[in-house]
Simulated scan of single mutants.
Amino acid sequence: MLQPTYPVKTARLILRPFTKDDLSPLHAFQSRPEVTRYLHWEPRSRADTAKALTDKIEHSTLREPGESMSVAVELIETGELIGDLTLRWASAEHRSGELSFIFHPKHYGRGYAAEATTELLRMGFEELGLHRIFGRCDGRNIASASLMEGLGMRREAHLREDELVKGEWTDKLVYAMLAAEWRRR
């Protein structure tokens, strides 16, 4: 079980549960074509963002395998919501999890995603006791692949034309880190 003691602070960020007040800032990036380009869903309407937010609000902890924990990322300096992290508890038996991340494009290139995702890895390894955490991205998504490599995750697979995304066959990249690799960082 993982029940973070919120808010979790890093040098520049606050990681916290989502709230109803996050609808407008979450919609500000979930509605953008450049954000959803490599995702399985299209830019979201405000109503679709509200549905997604309701689910995120209900999932701020991990109680059992198969569940996902959603974490809002805000800037300490301004209180602005800039990102959305997810940690899915994939398997209790294999002690594995999967991470994912989405950030507002106006905050790209400043290291916020790496800072927040590093904390998500710490929670998964040190608090939940996972053995392995993996992440996946569309093979064209160079920014996400670079982020995972920069975190010290290793590329484990390059699956050719693995999925049909928005009418186009796409490659998938799989990255992972083991608990022992986390401890050696």
Rank of each mutant, 00 (worst) to 15 (best):
M123R: 13
E34Q: 13
H131L: 09
E126A: 08
A72W: 06
I76K: 15
K20C: 06
T118V: 02
S31C: 09
Y112M: 07
T19E: 15
E42A: 12
R155E: 11
A52S: 13
I76Y: 04
R46T: 10
A157R: 10
I57H: 11
V73L: 10
A52M: 09
R16C: 09
F103N: 07
L151Q: 00
P17Y: 04
R16K: 15
R95E: 02
Y108Q: 15
E98L: 07
S100N: 13
W89Q: 06
E58K: 15
A92T: 02
L128H: 05
A143R: 11
A157E: 03
R37S: 10
G135R: 06
L120D: 00
K56M: 14
G139F: 01
R63N: 12
G139T: 01
F29Y: 15
D22K: 00
L75M: 13
H107R: 06
G124Y: 00
G150R: 05
R154P: 00
A116F: 00
K51A: 11
L23Q: 03
A92V: 00
L15H: 14
F134P: 03
H27L: 06
T118W: 13
M123G: 11
A143L: 12
T78V: 02
E64M: 09
V71D: 00
R154F: 09
A90F: 02
L120M: 03
H131S: 07
D84S: 13
Y38N: 14
K106N: 12
T49E: 10
E58Q: 15
A50K: 13
E126I: 01
R136K: 11
P25Q: 07
H158L: 14
E67K: 13
A116Y: 05
R32V: 00
P17H: 11
I142T: 14
E115V: 05
A90Y: 02
R110L: 06
V73H: 08
G109Q: 12
Q30N: 08
L39V: 02
K106W: 03
L15R: 10
G150S: 01
R132F: 11
R95W: 00
E93Q: 12
I82M: 13
S68G: 06
R32H: 02
S45F: 14
E58T: 01
T54C: 05
G152A: 02
M69Q: 08
G97T: 00
E119C: 13
E67T: 07
L147R: 03
D55E: 05
D48L: 09
T61V: 09
G139R: 03
H59L: 03
N141E: 07
G111F: 08
E74F: 02
A143T: 06
L26P: 08
R132H: 12
H131A: 07
T61K: 03
G152I: 00
